[in-house]
Simulated assay, not measured.
Amino acid sequence: MTVPLKPGSVRFENVQKRFGAVTAIHDLSLEIEPGTLVTLLGPSGCGKTTTLRMLAGLEQPSAGRILIGGRDVTALPANERDVSMVFQSYALFPHMSIADNVAYGLRSGGLSRRAAHERAEEGLALVGLNGFGERLPSELSGGQQQRVAVARALVLEPQVLLLDEPLSNLDTRLRRHVRTEIRELQQRLGFTAVYVTHDQDEALAVSDRIVVMKDGIMAQAGSPRELYEQPASAFIADFIGEANVVPCDVVRTSDGRLGARLGGMVHAIRADSAREGAAKLAIRPNAMFLGDRRPGFLDGRVLSAAYLGDHIEYEVETAFGRLFITDPAVETVRPIASEVGVGLHDRGVALIPA
């Protein structure tokens, strides 16, 4: 079986989608390179699922073009687009064996039963389910059912594999395991995948690139590291991982470099586009640490403390509002209402462009 040895590219050109008077997608232009896994990430109602459904042919754009492998598929029905979709609900037929489920699309396409089942067994082997073909879906775990859904999509040899919230029905530990399996399979086979989720950790773990959407607009696109370390807005900083967003002043330090001044603290910044003046700083919870009050630290007062095994979560009141801090120093929990100094590590602090 030649599972997507020639992965396709995807291009959205000025795509819009309107539902009556409501515009769900505003002028989306996006290119996805062959053999990459790109995640559409955002809160409910941001337009990510609508974008995926337009790519699948389940919704038609109101304007613009969609191309797969350089071919304009905007007006084509779903069955002519050379894509396969893995649904949130798995959509397995409960009365069919696993092999019959995986072979279903092949049989519908006219392949003989014998040939379809041979390819179905190859597909099950790809996802680590050798020997499971005769079982029913009810005899498999949630993670195994998800792998069956992926195998069923892959045996059709699509140019692009679409995954719509594929892990949302799994518990936390299993979700972490299955996302690793999906990423390993995509990298090993080299197929193009478009993955929709609202889970930031999931997106960071599986993606080559992440497209963050908000209110039908592409808010920022980039690698997981770029979005986490160089957020383009306060929304991105708080959505991709948690962040404390505080006002600061960008000032010129004595050595000629730029720093972000918070009260009596000046923190060196690396942003190439930084300019002197008012700005905002995104500070990750693990980028701060607590100590005694002293020069160069922010004065704070502990409002709450929660022990979580490998770290303590604090809320600390400062002149810049409440800061959420995760501290790995679990030997001693600082008491409520105690006065502390808040320091910053070098990493985990990013200047948000004006």
Rank of each mutant, 00 (worst) to 15 (best):
D171P: 08
L156W: 00
L58K: 07
Q159D: 15
L189H: 03
G110E: 10
R257I: 00
V340G: 03
V86C: 11
S138K: 14
R107E: 10
L174S: 01
A337W: 06
A115D: 15
E139D: 12
D201T: 14
Y90M: 09
G300E: 08
Y90W: 12
A260F: 04
N14F: 00
A153Y: 01
E121L: 11
I283W: 02
D171A: 08
T180R: 14
T39L: 00
V150W: 02
A24L: 03
P231R: 07
V178I: 15
A193G: 10
L40A: 13
E118F: 00
K48D: 08
T36I: 02
D215A: 15
H117N: 13
L124K: 04
D292K: 10
P328F: 12
G321W: 04
G64C: 05
G47A: 11
H311P: 00
T172M: 13
M85P: 06
A24H: 02
E80P: 02
E242W: 03
R135D: 05
V250E: 03
L163W: 00
Q230S: 12
F320M: 07
S9P: 10
N286D: 14
G143P: 04
E165M: 11
M54L: 13
D215S: 14
D27L: 02
A116K: 10
L189S: 00
G35R: 05
G321E: 05
E315F: 07
I325Q: 01
D272I: 05
A350L: 02
Y104N: 03
D208T: 04
G296V: 04
Q200M: 08
T50D: 05
G216W: 01
M54D: 05
R173E: 14
L298H: 04
F87H: 09
G20E: 12
R135L: 11
A91S: 14
R347W: 02
R152S: 06
R71Q: 15
G263I: 11
